[in-house]
Amino acid sequence: MEFGKVQEDEILSVNFSLPNDGSITSKILEKSEENKKVKFYVGCGTWGQKSWTKHLYNKGTKTSDFLKMYLTQFNSIELNAMFYSLPDRDRVIGWKKLAIENSKSNFLFCPRLPQLISHVLKLEDVNEIFQNFVDVVSNFGDNLGASFLQLGIFGPERLHILQDFVETVPSGFKLFVEVRSPEWFSNEKVKEEYFSVLSRNNIGAVITDTSGRRDLIHMNLTIPECFIRFVGNGGKYVESDFRRIDDWVIRIQEWVNRGIEKVYFFVHEHGERNTPILANYVIQQFNALLEANLPELTFIEK
């Protein structure tokens, strides 16, 4: 993931501390049911990188087998592949079958809405296409996790369009939204309106933690679930990535104590080479501090 990447010499000057919770978070968690078993999902944004055949997948693993291998290790995926085009029903059913056959748990696919909806039509006149998306991904059945919509060049002047769109989302269809224009976060009133629209419609707000866009860590939970996209710097900054994950685990622990119901944590790294190492650290910390009981990844012994 290149978004939010900063030059190496700037990394040390980034303030990685997590801000306090946004105002809506307390209201949402207050209403949440207590003692509900929290579900944790940790994954990556891709099921295969050639570089993973050096530590996670066996050398010589064919790209056509990457999904099968991924399913044996993780319990969810940020399904970015759908950004380019919508697969047909049979392909989704095929992926679901692979998940049932290969996953140790109830694997969740978290599809990204196609660029036709988010980037080309920018949510205008998308009812039919969106309904088609919902119909197709519904074939994942129990293996369907939250979907997410990422809006690039889409500023607060289009809030009414976003509002119209989220009002069409079928009840029971879980969706998170990520807006990226800085104007959403630089004005308190705009921010409040944005999160209020999402919350009223039972839509989640993606939180993206990346070096170059600290404003995206808004800490507003608009539903009692979180969808975190964590972007590590990797390389010689991997220790700093681990400390950032530690901070996240402490914050999620607070949310767990206050009634959060589901945690999606997707790990990225610029270049994606060592993403599994970061993801495994997340799993270890979730198990140690949050009793997540997730299977750790199995790396190839050297």
């Binding site: 790209t63 592949a81 095929g94």
Partner: peptide, 8 residues
Amino acid sequence: PMLEEEGV
């Protein structure tokens, strides 16, 4: 990009 069985 083409979306195929093995991904993109």
